[in-house]
Amino acid sequence: MSIQTETLRALYGTWRIARGDANGLGFFEFSINGFWRSFFAAVIVFPAFAFLRWHDLGEAPQDFPVGRYMTVEVIAYVIKWVAFPLVMLHILPMLGRAERYINFITVYNWSSVLQMAVYLVALTFGVLFPSLGAGGFVMVAVIAMLVYGVYIARLTLSVPLPTASAIVMADFLLSMVITSIGIRLAIGQLF
Results as ranks from 00 to 15, higher is better:
Met1Thr: 03
Met1Tyr: 07
Glu6Val: 01
Leu11Trp: 06
Gly13Asn: 02
Ala18Asn: 09
Gly24Val: 09
Leu25Gly: 04
Phe28Lys: 14
Phe30Tyr: 14
Ser31Phe: 10
Ile32Met: 11
Ile32Glu: 14
Phe35Cys: 05
Trp36Leu: 15
Ala42Lys: 09
Phe46Thr: 11
Trp54Lys: 08
His55Asn: 13
His55Val: 03
His55Gly: 00
Asp56Asn: 11
Gly67Val: 10
Gly67Tyr: 08
Arg68Phe: 03
Arg68Leu: 14
Val72Ile: 15
Lys80His: 06
Lys80Pro: 00
Trp81Lys: 05
Leu86Ala: 14
Met94Val: 09
Arg97Trp: 08
Ala98Tyr: 10
Ile102Cys: 03
Asn109Phe: 08
Val113Arg: 04
Leu114Thr: 12
Gln115Met: 11
Ala122Cys: 10
Thr124Cys: 04
Val127Met: 13
Val127Tyr: 11
Ser131Asp: 15
Leu132Thr: 07
Gly135Val: 04
Val138Glu: 12
Val138Gly: 04
Tyr148Asn: 08
Gly149Met: 03
Tyr151Ile: 05
Leu155His: 12
Leu155Glu: 06
Leu157Arg: 10
Ser158Tyr: 09
Leu161Val: 15
Ala164Trp: 09
Ser165Met: 15
Asp171His: 09
Phe172Pro: 02
Leu174Glu: 03
Thr179Cys: 00
Ile183Cys: 00
Arg184Pro: 00
Ala186Gln: 07
Phe191Glu: 04
